[in-house]
């Protein structure tokens, strides 16, 4: 028990040894995460927490509030007191779940602080698939009977479902031609792809990384403006098809609405330093996560346009209520 105490004490000490340079923060900060311990979002949150501890001189505890496809955690972020002692790492779902009719809550309930990371989706197929580029795949889908092609990688109406549906929609194909098979997440989706249960997995490249590197899965296109640094050989969707469709899962720090301006500015400055720190960048590049930063207002604008785009796509494909 002494050792355990030692480990944690060392961690806390390393965080609190820094001098506090103003009134806020006077006590530890809670960083809420709507996803489980051990997932990608949790890992990002824990790295940001370590960075914020260094910047703010107070310990930052990551607290997981999981379940309900993110609704529970995102609601907790909005319901907390806007005193700067409860922050949240919000994810793409903020702009999805209210369109699905799961909650009233949308991006307007938060004070946006900083976008910290963005992972564009790819179009992955099995390595032994006959399609060598995304145009061939889309042609084949167009000519196929509904239900011949099946895609998976996340839950019904969640991020990657919108990614593939939007791609089909933008290519002039009825989105219901490809059956969406709901899964718990990218890992079980990829398992389905390997076992021959589905044909397409439109997750981010990071999630498919181990299997792409192992030569079991290939990525045909990348739904972003620029090519990925992780796999620069994968062409962007625009290069291949000319389509303007883009989709990325993003993660950003938010606070409840009504956060005082001075605290907000202090946090934005601290987050920018965390984003530019070696530790954060080393972590992102080691994991293969996409770096992307937008402070305060700009993050807010990003959320607004992102929300409108998702809404349009989801209405077009019949997912929005």
């Amino acid at each position: 028990m002494k050792f355990a105490k030692g480990i944690i004490a060392a961690l806390l000490l390393s965080a609190t040894a820094m001098p506090a340079w103003a009134d806020y923060p006077e006590r530890p900060i809670t960083l809420l995460v709507a996803w489980g311990a051990g997932g990608g979002t949790d890992a990002v949150a824990r790295v940001i927490a370590v960075g914020l501890e260094k910047e703010l001189g107070q310990s930052v505890n990551v607290v997981n509030r999981t379940g309900g496809s993110g609704v529970v955690g995102h609601a907790a972020m909005a319901d907390a007191a806007p005193d700067g002692y409860t922050l949240g790492l919000a994810t793409t779902e903020v702009n999805l779940m209210h369109w699905l009719g799961l909650t009233e809550l949308d991006y307007n309930v938060y004070t946006p602080l900083a976008l910290m990371n963005q992972d564009p989706a790819g179009v992955q197929v099995s390595a032994d698939s006959e399609y060598t580029n995304v145009n061939e795949l889309l042609e084949a889908i167009k000519a196929s009977k509904p239900g011949t092609f099946r895609a998976t990688g996340s839950g019904q109406g969640s991020s990657w479902h919108v990614a593939i549906a939007g791609l089909l929609n933008a290519s002039g194909i009825d989105a219901s031609t490809v059956t969406w098979v709901p899964s718990d997440g990218a890992a079980s989706g990829l398992q389905e792809l390997l076992s021959g249960g589905t044909e397409i997995v439109p997750t981010s490249l990071v999630e498919a990384r181990a299997l792409i590197e192992a030569g079991r899965v290939k990525s045909l296109a990348y739904m972003s403006k620029e090519r990925s640094t992780l796999f620069p050989d994968v062409p962007t969707l625009k290069e291949e098809t000319g389509s303007d469709w883009e989709f990325g899962a993003w993660r950003g720090i938010v606070a409840p609405k009504g956060l005082p301006d001075d605290i907000r500015d202090k946090l934005i400055a601290a987050l920018e330093k965390v984003y530019n720190s070696d530790d954060y960048n080393k972590f992102l590049s080691a994991q293969g996560f996409g770096a992307s930063f937008l402070p305060g207002e700009e993050f807010g604008k990003f959320l607004a346009t992102n929300d409108v785009n998702f809404g349009e796509t989801m209405k077009a494909i019949g997912l929005a209520k």
């Binding site: 379940g67 496809s69 609704v71 529970v72 909650t103 839950g155 019904q156 109406g157 969640s158 709901p182």
Partner: peptide, 19 residues
């Protein structure tokens, strides 16, 4: 909410029970 259809079941309108 954690079912393949992503439909809230037996939650009686509670956000907590969505989990």
């Amino acid at each position: 909410l954690n079912n393949p259809a992503g439909v809230p079941r037996l939650t009686f309108g509670s956000t907590e029970m969505l989990a």
